[in-house]
Protein backbone atom coordinates (compact mmCIF):
# COMPACT_ATOMS: atom_id res chain seq x y z
CA UNK A 1 0.00 0.00 0.00
CA UNK A 2 1.12 3.48 -0.76
CA UNK A 3 1.52 5.60 2.34
CA UNK A 4 -1.86 7.23 3.09
CA UNK A 5 -0.23 10.53 4.01
CA UNK A 6 1.57 10.66 0.69
CA UNK A 7 -1.61 10.10 -1.30
CA UNK A 8 -3.50 12.70 0.75
CA UNK A 9 -0.71 15.19 0.14
CA UNK A 10 -0.80 14.40 -3.57
CA UNK A 11 -4.57 14.88 -3.74
CA UNK A 12 -4.25 18.16 -1.85
CA UNK A 13 -1.70 19.34 -4.42
CA UNK A 14 -4.06 18.30 -7.20
CA UNK A 15 -7.05 20.12 -5.77
CA UNK A 16 -5.25 23.36 -4.98
CA UNK A 17 -3.47 23.62 -8.33
CA UNK A 18 -6.50 23.89 -10.59
CA UNK A 19 -8.48 27.06 -11.01
CA UNK A 20 -11.89 25.42 -10.85
CA UNK A 21 -11.40 24.68 -7.14
CA UNK A 22 -10.86 28.33 -6.31
CA UNK A 23 -13.66 29.75 -8.41
CA UNK A 24 -16.31 27.19 -7.54
CA UNK A 25 -15.68 27.48 -3.80
CA UNK A 26 -15.38 31.28 -3.92
CA UNK A 27 -18.61 31.42 -5.90
CA UNK A 28 -20.39 29.13 -3.45
CA UNK A 29 -19.32 31.39 -0.59
CA UNK A 30 -20.11 34.69 -2.28
CA UNK A 31 -23.44 33.67 -3.78
CA UNK A 32 -24.71 32.12 -0.55
CA UNK A 33 -23.64 35.04 1.62
CA UNK A 34 -24.82 37.73 -0.82
CA UNK A 35 -28.24 36.25 -1.58
CA UNK A 36 -28.85 35.44 2.06
CA UNK A 37 -28.01 39.04 2.98
CA UNK A 38 -30.29 40.46 0.28
CA UNK A 39 -33.18 38.26 1.39
CA UNK A 40 -32.65 39.22 5.04
CA UNK A 41 -32.66 42.92 4.15
CA UNK A 42 -35.82 42.56 2.08
CA UNK A 43 -37.59 40.55 4.80
CA UNK A 44 -36.67 43.16 7.40
CA UNK A 45 -38.15 45.96 5.34
CA UNK A 46 -41.30 43.99 4.47
CA UNK A 47 -41.86 42.29 7.82
CA UNK A 48 -44.82 44.48 8.80
CA UNK A 49 -46.72 43.34 5.68
CA UNK A 50 -46.45 39.68 6.75
CA UNK A 51 -49.59 37.89 7.97
CA UNK A 52 -49.89 37.04 11.64
CA UNK A 53 -49.13 33.40 10.91
CA UNK A 54 -46.07 34.27 8.88
CA UNK A 55 -44.84 36.45 11.69
CA UNK A 56 -45.33 33.65 14.19
CA UNK A 57 -43.48 31.03 12.14
CA UNK A 58 -40.74 33.37 10.97
CA UNK A 59 -37.31 31.67 11.15
CA UNK A 60 -34.57 34.31 11.23
CA UNK A 61 -31.82 31.66 11.26
CA UNK A 62 -33.11 29.74 8.27
CA UNK A 63 -33.72 33.00 6.41
CA UNK A 64 -30.05 33.93 6.75
CA UNK A 65 -29.20 30.72 4.78
CA UNK A 66 -31.73 31.34 2.01
CA UNK A 67 -28.92 31.98 -0.50
CA UNK A 68 -27.77 28.40 -0.21
CA UNK A 69 -30.36 27.38 -2.81
CA UNK A 70 -28.25 29.18 -5.40
CA UNK A 71 -24.84 28.89 -3.78
CA UNK A 72 -25.07 25.11 -3.62
CA UNK A 73 -24.97 24.94 -7.41
CA UNK A 74 -21.34 26.07 -7.31
CA UNK A 75 -20.70 23.31 -4.77
CA UNK A 76 -22.22 20.80 -7.18
CA UNK A 77 -19.77 21.98 -9.86
CA UNK A 78 -16.89 21.66 -7.40
CA UNK A 79 -17.88 18.14 -6.33
CA UNK A 80 -18.37 16.95 -9.89
CA UNK A 81 -15.16 18.45 -11.27
CA UNK A 82 -12.96 17.12 -8.47
CA UNK A 83 -13.31 13.60 -9.83
CA UNK A 84 -14.84 13.93 -13.28
CA UNK A 85 -12.05 16.15 -14.60
CA UNK A 86 -9.73 13.19 -14.05
CA UNK A 87 -11.84 11.27 -16.55
CA UNK A 88 -12.35 14.06 -19.07
CA UNK A 89 -8.63 14.85 -19.16
CA UNK A 90 -7.42 11.26 -19.10
CA UNK A 91 -5.48 12.11 -15.92
CA UNK A 92 -7.22 9.17 -14.23
CA UNK A 93 -4.85 6.74 -15.98
CA UNK A 94 -1.81 8.65 -14.78
CA UNK A 95 -3.31 8.92 -11.29
CA UNK A 96 -4.05 5.21 -11.05
CA UNK A 97 -0.63 4.33 -12.43
CA UNK A 98 0.81 6.41 -9.58
CA UNK A 99 -1.57 4.95 -6.98
CA UNK A 100 -2.81 1.57 -8.21
CA UNK A 101 -4.59 0.89 -4.91
CA UNK A 102 -7.88 2.36 -6.01
CA UNK A 103 -9.43 2.58 -2.55
CA UNK A 104 -6.45 4.60 -1.38
CA UNK A 105 -6.72 6.94 -4.37
CA UNK A 106 -10.49 7.38 -4.13
CA UNK A 107 -10.90 7.88 -0.41
CA UNK A 108 -7.93 10.25 -0.27
CA UNK A 109 -9.61 12.35 -2.92
CA UNK A 110 -12.93 12.17 -1.08
CA UNK A 111 -11.24 13.15 2.18
CA UNK A 112 -9.46 16.14 0.69
CA UNK A 113 -12.55 17.37 -1.15
CA UNK A 114 -14.67 16.85 1.97
CA UNK A 115 -12.22 18.66 4.24
CA UNK A 116 -12.03 21.63 1.91
CA UNK A 117 -15.81 21.72 1.56
CA UNK A 118 -16.16 21.60 5.35
CA UNK A 119 -13.89 24.62 5.83
CA UNK A 120 -15.62 26.62 3.12
CA UNK A 121 -19.05 25.44 4.30
CA UNK A 122 -18.44 26.51 7.90
CA UNK A 123 -17.04 29.88 6.86
CA UNK A 124 -20.04 30.40 4.60
CA UNK A 125 -22.61 29.44 7.21
CA UNK A 126 -21.16 31.51 10.05
CA UNK A 127 -20.60 34.62 7.94
CA UNK A 128 -23.98 34.21 6.28
CA UNK A 129 -25.64 33.90 9.68
CA UNK A 130 -24.03 36.92 11.33
CA UNK A 131 -24.40 39.15 8.29
CA UNK A 132 -28.02 38.05 7.85
CA UNK A 133 -28.92 38.66 11.50
CA UNK A 134 -27.35 42.10 11.43
CA UNK A 135 -29.64 42.95 8.50
CA UNK A 136 -32.79 41.55 10.15
CA UNK A 137 -32.84 44.33 12.74
CA UNK A 138 -35.27 43.62 15.56
CA UNK A 139 -36.34 40.27 14.08
CA UNK A 140 -32.93 38.69 14.44
CA UNK A 141 -32.01 35.52 16.28
CA UNK A 142 -29.04 35.14 18.58
CA UNK A 143 -26.43 32.40 18.25
CA UNK A 144 -27.24 31.45 21.85
CA UNK A 145 -30.94 30.87 21.17
CA UNK A 146 -32.16 27.25 21.27
CA UNK A 147 -31.32 25.36 18.09
CA UNK A 148 -29.52 28.27 16.42
CA UNK A 149 -25.92 27.10 16.80
CA UNK A 150 -27.02 23.65 15.66
CA UNK A 151 -28.52 25.17 12.51
CA UNK A 152 -25.40 27.25 11.76
CA UNK A 153 -23.04 24.30 12.16
CA UNK A 154 -25.58 22.12 10.35
CA UNK A 155 -25.47 24.41 7.35
CA UNK A 156 -21.71 23.95 7.09
CA UNK A 157 -22.16 20.19 7.38
CA UNK A 158 -24.95 20.24 4.78
CA UNK A 159 -22.62 21.91 2.28
CA UNK A 160 -19.95 19.29 2.97
CA UNK A 161 -22.33 16.38 2.49
CA UNK A 162 -23.65 17.91 -0.71
CA UNK A 163 -20.13 18.02 -2.16
CA UNK A 164 -19.46 14.42 -1.14
CA UNK A 165 -22.74 13.29 -2.68
CA UNK A 166 -21.72 14.92 -5.95
CA UNK A 167 -18.24 13.33 -5.82
CA UNK A 168 -19.84 9.91 -5.43
CA UNK A 169 -22.38 10.40 -8.22
CA UNK A 170 -19.75 11.89 -10.56
CA UNK A 171 -17.47 8.90 -9.94
CA UNK A 172 -20.29 6.63 -11.02
CA UNK A 173 -20.95 8.71 -14.14
CA UNK A 174 -17.24 9.28 -15.00
CA UNK A 175 -17.93 12.43 -16.99
CA UNK A 176 -18.31 16.11 -16.10
CA UNK A 177 -20.97 16.57 -18.76
CA UNK A 178 -23.13 13.77 -17.38
CA UNK A 179 -22.46 14.70 -13.78
CA UNK A 180 -23.37 18.36 -14.20
CA UNK A 181 -26.16 17.54 -16.62
CA UNK A 182 -27.88 15.35 -14.06
CA UNK A 183 -27.03 16.97 -10.72
CA UNK A 184 -27.52 20.65 -11.61
CA UNK A 185 -31.08 20.28 -12.89
CA UNK A 186 -31.86 17.93 -10.04
CA UNK A 187 -30.86 20.36 -7.30
CA UNK A 188 -31.97 23.51 -9.09
CA UNK A 189 -35.23 22.37 -10.71
CA UNK A 190 -36.41 18.84 -10.02
CA UNK A 191 -36.07 18.81 -6.26
CA UNK A 192 -37.52 22.34 -5.60
CA UNK A 193 -40.40 21.80 -8.03
CA UNK A 194 -41.35 18.37 -6.70
CA UNK A 195 -41.17 19.66 -3.15
CA UNK A 196 -43.92 22.15 -4.04
CA UNK A 197 -46.25 19.61 -5.63
CA UNK A 198 -48.89 18.27 -3.22
CA UNK A 199 -48.54 14.57 -2.37
CA UNK A 200 -45.28 14.25 -4.35
CA UNK A 201 -43.67 16.51 -1.81
CA UNK A 202 -43.92 13.89 0.91
CA UNK A 203 -41.56 11.80 -1.23
CA UNK A 204 -39.42 14.79 -2.13
CA UNK A 205 -38.84 15.38 1.58
CA UNK A 206 -36.56 12.34 1.46
CA UNK A 207 -34.35 13.67 -1.36
CA UNK A 208 -30.81 14.30 -0.11
CA UNK A 209 -31.01 18.08 -0.33
CA UNK A 210 -34.52 18.39 1.14
CA UNK A 211 -33.73 16.07 4.04
CA UNK A 212 -30.34 17.61 4.67
CA UNK A 213 -31.61 21.20 4.72
CA UNK A 214 -33.87 20.44 7.67
CA UNK A 215 -30.87 20.95 9.92
CA UNK A 216 -30.36 24.48 8.58
CA UNK A 217 -33.67 25.65 10.05
CA UNK A 218 -34.77 26.36 13.60
CA UNK A 219 -38.55 26.79 13.25
CA UNK A 220 -39.81 23.54 11.73
CA UNK A 221 -43.42 24.41 10.97
CA UNK A 222 -45.21 25.60 7.85
CA UNK A 223 -42.98 25.20 4.78
CA UNK A 224 -40.23 23.70 6.86
CA UNK A 225 -42.40 20.98 8.39
CA UNK A 226 -41.08 17.47 7.92
CA UNK A 227 -41.91 14.05 9.36
CA UNK A 228 -38.44 13.90 10.89
CA UNK A 229 -36.27 16.12 13.07
CA UNK A 230 -33.17 18.07 12.03
CA UNK A 231 -30.65 15.36 12.89
CA UNK A 232 -32.81 12.60 11.44
CA UNK A 233 -32.97 14.61 8.21
CA UNK A 234 -29.23 14.96 8.33
CA UNK A 235 -28.91 11.19 8.77
CA UNK A 236 -31.13 10.64 5.73
CA UNK A 237 -28.81 12.82 3.66
CA UNK A 238 -25.77 11.07 5.12
CA UNK A 239 -27.24 7.75 4.00
CA UNK A 240 -27.57 9.12 0.46
CA UNK A 241 -23.95 10.26 0.61
CA UNK A 242 -22.68 6.90 1.83
CA UNK A 243 -24.62 5.15 -0.94
CA UNK A 244 -23.26 7.53 -3.61
CA UNK A 245 -19.66 7.22 -2.38
CA UNK A 246 -19.92 3.46 -2.17
CA UNK A 247 -21.43 3.25 -5.65
CA UNK A 248 -18.61 5.43 -6.95
CA UNK A 249 -16.03 3.24 -5.28
CA UNK A 250 -17.45 0.01 -6.66
CA UNK A 251 -17.45 1.40 -10.18
CA UNK A 252 -13.93 2.78 -9.85
CA UNK A 253 -12.72 -0.50 -8.39
CA UNK A 254 -14.21 -2.75 -11.04
CA UNK A 255 -14.19 -0.79 -14.27
CA UNK A 256 -11.25 -0.36 -16.63
CA UNK A 257 -9.73 3.07 -16.19
Amino acid sequence: MAAPGAVLQSEWTKIRTVRSTVWTLALAFLVTVAFSAIICAVVNSQFKTFSAEEKLTFDPTGTSFAGILLGQLALVVFGVLVIASEYSSGMIRTSLAAVPQRASFYFSKVAVAGALALVVGMATSFISFFLGQSLLGSHKASIGDPGVLRAVIGTGLYMTLLVLFCVGVATMLRSPMLGLGILMPFFFLVSPILSAVPKVKTVAKYFPDQAGRQITTVVQVGDNAAPYGPWAGFAIMAAWVVAALLGGYLILKNRDA
Binding site: S85, E86, S89, G90
Partner: peptide, 8 residues
Protein backbone atom coordinates in the same frame (compact mmCIF):
# COMPACT_ATOMS: atom_id res chain seq x y z
CA UNK B 1 -3.01 13.66 -23.17
CA UNK B 2 -3.45 11.89 -19.84
CA UNK B 3 -2.80 15.19 -18.09
CA UNK B 4 -5.13 17.78 -16.55
CA UNK B 5 -4.62 20.77 -18.82
CA UNK B 6 -5.34 23.30 -16.09
CA UNK B 7 -2.35 22.30 -14.02
CA UNK B 8 1.15 23.62 -14.67
Amino acid sequence: KAIHGGRT
